[in-house]
Simulated scan of single mutants.
Amino acid sequence: MPTKGLVERLSEGEGVIIAEGYLFEFERRGLLKAGSFVPEVVLEFPERVLDLHEEFVHAGSDVVQAFTYYGHREKMRLIGKEHLLEKLNIDALKIARRVADRTGTLMAGNICNTTVYQKDNQELVEQTEAMFKEQIQWAEGNGADFIIAETFLDYGEAELALECIKKYGNGLPALVNLTPPAAETTFDGKPIDVACKMLEDKGAAVVGLNCSRGPSTIIPLIKKVREMCKGPIACLPVPYRTTPEQPIMQTLVDPDTNKMAFPENLPAFQCSRYQIREFAKQCKEIGVEVVGLCCGNASHYMREVAEVYGRKPPASKYSTDMSLHFMYGNKAHFSKHYTQSYLKTFISNTKRGESN
C-alpha cells in the first residue's frame, strides 16, 4: 500500500517519530571521526548505514532520514573529498529509500547548517544557497518524501534553507528545525519561538527545535514554540542531562577532568530511559506532533518514545519484563531460594570474605 505523506499524516492527527543521531552513533562504533563529523561511513561501510536505518525503524521511527547531514560541499572540502560529494549524497539517499520502501516508512532528505553562512556577506549567502540547491535536488531526484533542514543557529540561514526547498524541491514539504544555543535567541537575535513562527508563516510544513539541548532544557522552549505556532511542531533534543546552568551539551563539564565533555565524554551525561520516557510524555501533553532524538540517540531510546506515542514497534516484543528475572522475578515457578534468600545476600553490604 502507498505510504501516507508527512503532511497527510499530520493533518489526520497522527504523530510522526523521527530517529536522528547518526553522526554520534557511528562515531561511537568507530566508523566516523569526531571533529570533522563527515558521514564518510556512507562510502566506506554502506551496509552499516543500512543496518542502522533498519534498527531505528525496528525501534519505532516512522522516517528513514538519509545520512547526508554534514555531507555538504564545505565539509567535504574540509577533508579533501569534495570530488566524492555527489556520490556520497546519492548513495545515502538510495540506501534510505531502499529501507523506507522495504519497511513502509517515509524517507527524508536532509540539509543542515553550512558553516559558511554570513548574513551580511552576499558571496557567502550565494555559496550557501548553491550548497542547499544541489543537496535538495539530489534528494528530490532520488525519491525523498520531504526535506529536513536542521541545526540552524541563525534564523537567516534557516529561512534561506526553507526558500531553497520551496524553490528547488519540486513541492516537497519542509521540516525546519532551529538549534537553540545557551541563550534563547538565534545568533542573529530573534527569540526562538518568534523565529519558529516566522518560518511557519513562510510555508514550512513543520517547525521546531533539534540538537544541543537535552530534554530538561528544551522542554521550556518547545512550550513557547507551541504557544506561538499554530501548525505542527517538532522537538528532537540530545539525550544528555543538561541543566539550567549548563543548558546545552557543548557547555557540559566533565566533573572528573573539569574539561568540556563535548564530544568524547558526553556518555557520562547520558539520560536514563526513564528520563526519555518522561520527555516523550511531556511532548505528547504539550502537543508536539513530530518527536524524536538527535545526537546521542540509540534504538532503546526510540522505543521509549514510540511506546509513549501509542506505538508498538517490533522492538516492543523485547521490552523489559523483570517478572521473568531469576532473582528479581515474581513468578511462582521461581524458587524462593533465589527470589528471597539470594536477593537479600546479593544486595547486602556484607564485607568481602565475611560469612553470610
Rank of each mutant, 00 (worst) to 15 (best):
I147V: 04
A92V: 01
D154R: 07
E86V: 15
E140A: 15
E74F: 12
G60K: 04
Q65V: 12
F132Y: 04
E140G: 09
I148N: 11
N121I: 03
L50G: 13
E82K: 05
V64P: 01
T103Y: 13
K87Y: 10
Y117R: 01
A149R: 01
L84M: 09
E54Q: 13
I90F: 00
L106W: 05
V125S: 01
A108D: 07
A100F: 05
N89G: 15
V99W: 03
V125L: 01
T68I: 08
T68K: 14
L153P: 09
N121W: 02
G109M: 10
M131G: 07
V64T: 01
S61K: 06
D120L: 11
E54L: 13
V99E: 03
I136E: 00
L50H: 13
D62K: 00
V64N: 01
I79Y: 00
Q135L: 04
L88R: 03
S61T: 08
D51Y: 13
D91F: 07
A92G: 00
I95Q: 14
H72V: 08
M131V: 11
D51F: 11
E74D: 10
R77S: 10
F56G: 04
D154K: 06
M107K: 15
I111L: 07
E126T: 12
E140F: 11
V99A: 06
Q127L: 15
A66Y: 02
H72R: 12
I148R: 12
Q65L: 11
H72K: 13
N113P: 08
T151R: 03
T105P: 08
K94Q: 03
T114G: 04
R73F: 02
E123W: 08
Q122I: 10
L93E: 15
K119D: 10
N142T: 02
A59N: 09
D62I: 02
W138G: 09
L88I: 02
Y117H: 09
E54P: 06
L52Y: 15
L88M: 05
N121C: 06
F67M: 02
Q118K: 14
R102W: 05
E126K: 10
V64D: 00
V64L: 00
E86N: 14
R97G: 02
A139F: 01
L50C: 11
D120I: 06
Y70E: 12
M131P: 07
K133N: 09
A59R: 08
A59T: 14
L78N: 14
N113L: 12
E126N: 12
V63L: 00
T103H: 15
A130R: 13
H53E: 12
Q122M: 10
T115L: 11
G141T: 06
D91L: 13
M107A: 14
D62M: 04
D101K: 14
N113V: 10
N113S: 13
Y70A: 12
Q65E: 10
H83R: 14
